[in-house]
């Protein structure tokens, strides 16, 4: 099997590498990808959504249906990991082959964590809510916020982190973030627009269609942020403890 796989892979690699001759030159502004759709996004995006960060505008408005399912993908991942791994019985002890040094959690580490974690969390919120004007948005903010809990768990202990962010709460956050996103879509539907047509929020918020889109983007980014934050924490809780929530990394 192995030599066979190697030969096939090598042949495919050679074929595909020679075929790159046909691709447009790298970074050519006249290539089809750069001339067909993207000028539309760049030139109209700002006028239609009032969001200078074009990536955020496209992600959360033009292709918001994709992004909805993207947050659902991570939600699905946390569900799957929990269903596969989570055990309530703590009797079966598991052999840890590789055990990181417990004594490493000294005062300096805890002190550093104490000073870093609040800054991380504020930065995460900044990234989330400033996504219209600078790089960042729901995912990045959510991951950073989730990473702050992971850091807490690494520097203190899993139990300590779980006292602050309980497992039940994590799962509720996972579902609520995606529900917020889909709920905004449904509100737009109820206002007589298509699903996820944020212009439907204009009547509720008392702003113009363009500003309604901008606010809609912010709201769905918040939803994505909540889901992603909770999912990252949930993945860590389950995987680091092997499913019994006793002891982390």
């Amino acid at each position: 099997m192995k030599p066979f796989a190697r030969i096939i892979l090598f042949l495919c690699a050679v074929m595909m590498l020679t075929a790159t001759v046909d691709l447009p030159d790298w970074a050519d502004p006249g290539s089809p990808a750069s001339t067909h759709l993207s000028p539309g996004f760049i030139e109209q995006g700002y006028h239609e959504t009032a969001t200078p960060n074009v990536v955020t505008a496209v992600l959360a408005d033009y292709r918001s249906y994709d992004t909805l399912f993207e947050s659902v993908v991570v939600f699905a991942a946390s569900l799957v990991v929990m269903l596969v791994l989570r055990r309530t019985s703590t009797g079966t002890s598991r052999i840890k082959h590789f055990r990181p040094k417990r004594e490493g959690r000294d005062t300096i580490l805890r002190g550093a964590a104490q000073s870093i974690i609040p800054v991380m969390q504020i930065f995460a919120l900044y990234v989330l809510f400033h996504g219209h004007y600078s790089p960042g948005g729901g995912f990045q903010g959510g991951v950073i916020f989730g990473a702050s809990f992971i850091l807490l768990s690494l520097c203190y202990s899993l139990k300590f982190a779980m006292q602050r962010f309980k497992e039940k709460m994590v799962l509720i956050c996972c579902a609520c973030g995606a529900l917020l996103y889909a709920g905004i879509g449904a509100v737009c539907l109820a206002m007589g627009w298509n699903f996820l047509g944020y212009a439907g929020l204009a009547g509720l918020l008392g702003v113009t269609d363009v500003m309604a889109r901008s606010h809609g983007i912010l709201a769905v980014e918040a939803g994505v942020g909540i889901t992603v934050m909770a999912v990252m924490v949930s993945l860590y809780y389950d995987l680091a403890s092997g499913g019994d929530m006793e002891e982390g990394l």
Partner: peptide, 9 residues
């Protein structure tokens, strides 16, 4: 982090 977390088991 999650790969290292799995690697301990």
């Amino acid at each position: 982090v999650i790969i290292v977390a799995t690697a301990q088991y």
